[in-house]
Simulated assay, not measured.
Amino acid sequence: MTQPIRTIGFDADDTLWHNESVFRLTQEQIFDMLADHADPDTIGEKLLAAERRNLGLYGFGVKGFTLSMIETAIEVTSGKVPAATIKEILEAGRAMLTHPVETLPGVHDTLEAVAPDYSLILITKGDLFDQERKLAQSGLGDYFDGVEIVSDKKPAVYERIFGASEGGPEAAMMVGNSLKSDVIPAIEAGSWGVHVPHSLTWALEHADPPEGAERFRQIETLDALPDLLRGL
């Protein structure tokens, strides 16, 4: 018999608040900075390749993105990037770390609706200080019984986090915008995985939906979550 859901994990970036849009704006800035050396498509390809190479070293978040932008600038200028451009890139990275937090529509109402009946855990990856800052500025912290800022999201991570909750992974659900990080590994850990698509998704987070998985669900907006829970 399937256990009733007792714990709900929520992703943060682009599930609870805007994030990828800030990265896209900064990417446009580096296109302008390096316009004399390469076209936007070339810069974008090299930046994505640098991010992919560096994930294992720098992890997810603004700091790794900033270092990848610097590496890209060095590459497209054949090592001749001016110090002034490096300074601009560092300033752009700092601006990302102080960018105002804007929650997505329906987030407050949804968390308020489900918080009385479930244990809520925020599960996010990225820079520790930046994620703590965004949670504090979002005004959402009081809804959560726990916060987990992790280096990556793998099945073992969900097994550990949900394993410490009542009912374990089988009585848990993970909700997020990334199929690759939020949904698929949670399902592999034995939990439910609910996909809430966002209009902007980082290329390295793309994955195919786990069609046919018994515990996979998709909702178009977060405010549909309470109805989904009632229907399970």
Results as ranks from 00 to 15, higher is better:
R133P: 00
Q27T: 15
E214Q: 14
K180E: 09
T201R: 09
L97G: 14
G106N: 00
I43T: 01
T124R: 02
R6G: 08
L135I: 06
W192V: 12
A164H: 09
V183Y: 02
A35M: 09
I70V: 13
G231Y: 07
V196W: 02
L122V: 02
L232G: 03
K154H: 09
Q137S: 12
N54L: 11
M174W: 03
T103V: 15
L120N: 03
V150N: 04
A156I: 12
W202I: 13
K125T: 02
P4T: 05
M96N: 08
P82G: 03
A189P: 03
K134V: 01
S165V: 03
G79N: 06
P4V: 02
H99Y: 10
R24M: 14
V194M: 06
D32M: 13
L16A: 08
E28I: 13
I187R: 01
F129Y: 12
D36H: 14
K63G: 03
R52L: 15
A84G: 09
L140R: 01
P82F: 06
S178M: 10
N54Q: 10
A156W: 03
G146H: 08
E20G: 11
L128P: 01
W192H: 15
M1I: 10
D13R: 08
E188K: 15
F129L: 15
T2H: 12
K87T: 15
K153N: 03
T85H: 12
P209W: 09
V150M: 04
Y143Q: 08
A213F: 06
A186N: 02
G146C: 05
E148P: 02
P116F: 10
G212I: 07
V62W: 04
F216Q: 04
K80N: 14
P210C: 12
Q137I: 07
N19K: 06
R94L: 15
L140V: 00
F144H: 01
R215F: 05
H18K: 15
I86Q: 05
S68P: 00
E45D: 14
M96I: 06
K153G: 02
R6M: 07
